[in-house]
Write a protein that binds this DNA or RNA. Sequence first.
DNA 1: GTAACTGTGTGACCTACATCACATTCAAAG
DNA 2: CTTTGAATGTGATGTAGGTCACACAGTTAC
Lengths: 190, 190
Amino acid sequence: MDAKAVLKAHIAKVVQLTDEQFDYVFSHFKPHSYKKGQAIISEGDKVDCEYFVLEGCLKSFYINDEVKMYILQFAMPTWWASDYNALYSGSKATISVDCITDSQVLSLCNADREKLCNEIHAVEHFFRWRTNKGYVASQKRLLSFMNNDARHRYEELMALYPALYNIVPKQLIAAYLGVSRETLSRLYNS
Amino acid sequence: MDAKAVLKAHIAKVVQLTDEQFDYVFSHFKPHSYKKGQAIISEGDKVDCEYFVLEGCLKSFYINDEVKMYILQFAMPTWWASDYNALYSGSKATISVDCITDSQVLSLCNADREKLCNEIHAVEHFFRWRTNKGYVASQKRLLSFMNNDARHRYEELMALYPALYNIVPKQLIAAYLGVSRETLSRLYNS
DNA sequence: GTAACTGTGTGACCTACATCACATTCAAAG
DNA sequence: CTTTGAATGTGATGTAGGTCACACAGTTAC
């Protein structure tokens, strides 16, 4: 399935666009190929775009003063990633995004998204829906953080996204769970 | 300022509605008065509405199997609260909402919100904007949870919402920070 | 081949915070 | 004014998980 078909199917799950509307929407997306390890957004960058994953796997992450990394999100195919705070507010990136594996993505810049949302009501509806999803997922993860210990969160993650286990180094899984890699190692070896 | 004016000012910060449009939108909101301690959404309820706070203070919270409470959000005037997962998905409430102080709120039911979003493009834009805000705030809080210790999170919260210190029992602040009330007590007495 | 680098396991120790127990303060109700 | 109960403070002790140190793969670079 090509980029266009993937995006079309993704949007069609939520709203109906005519073919002309979709073609118009799609014309605002730009395809990109990235290699494993390549950065898409780095701390301090001006953030203009968000990214829709076609193939591969991205991560969005924060690195603190002690150079410890925390992963906000793994982005698999048909997921979106960016530093949304920076994207919406126009501030510099504090969240970075890079590639865990070789990846194909489509970029959509903020101005174009807003333009499309303004021009096509259904597109605005789509993005409201998508952000809702993200919001609810984020709340759930927050609760899981408060409520559950590391083992529980690990099992939750593996149940939800078993594919991650093979694709993603365990260091990164630890950084997503908010534990040290040593602790994670001890968790599943017992 | 009456309910109508408060909501109008709140929406006007984001989108422009004509007076007729706003009157129409407002006609879908219902005013409610609640007493301190009164429940608005209880675990297991069918969730039909979200709530816009005019006066007072609500909390949305989760209670786990060991009857420990975790607070997702304090809702002050002009904030919104509900169990959004249940509201959007039609499932039963796992998140509860109740009143920390006597409160005045406006309710908007899910079907009406969707209807209004569909009928008036600007309203859909408003709700997309609002959910964006919530999403970004939730991500920030998640990061703070992973990155910072309890003292840091406490100071962050007090810097952001100093008003909470006077209004909200410290038990509840602890439940928001995700620490025991004993730990919180030790934190600010040193 | 070997070097260098990145990822992972494992032991020894340390710390932030939870839990339990009880004392105290404060506010509401009689 | 007294009683009751909720909210808060504080000590003693337990534990999940962090940190540091080092060993041992598995890859990539030469």
